[in-house]
Amino acid sequence: MDSAEKIVRFINYPLVVFPMMIDSYVFISLLIFAVLSSIGSLMTKDNFYSALYMALALVFIASTYALVNLQEIFILIVFIFVGAVGIVTVSLAAVYKFKPSMQVSKAWIIPSVLTAGILSYVFYRSSTYIEFQGASINIDDYLVLIIALVSLMVLLMLSVISISRGD
């Protein structure tokens, strides 16, 4: 048996798998779940559930980063994008409740599917295999960037508060 192979028991059935293949399967599953969640967000009638599906899709997208050993980006997406902006969107969707109605234009589904299919085929034809390595970053520059971006966020939040108060 190849040293890279590993035996995994699944309901008493020994399965011979490759460690790299497990990663790939989990990665592809996450991508499929992300796409399905986004389709759920499109198809659901209620805005509240649409926002929840959207948050779920973003968590799956962030999980793909965690899977390729990029935890920093995972934390940024989950904490800032899903945790802050996503939850505000969910709250807004819960506050502005309308009578649930289908908001899907059927005329646009066919061109969208065609475009996605053609682009996916083009990507598949010119595709290469990629591998991810452990990440290391220059802390000093990164710290300056983070401080600058946090300042930007604070300024924007202040301007939003100013707009909301009507000043």
Partner: peptide
């Protein structure tokens, strides 16, 4: 892993 899967999911 193939880069096409990531880009296809992104396009979808």
């Amino acid at each position: 892993m193939q880069v096409a899967f990531v880009l296809a999911a992104s396009v979808a």
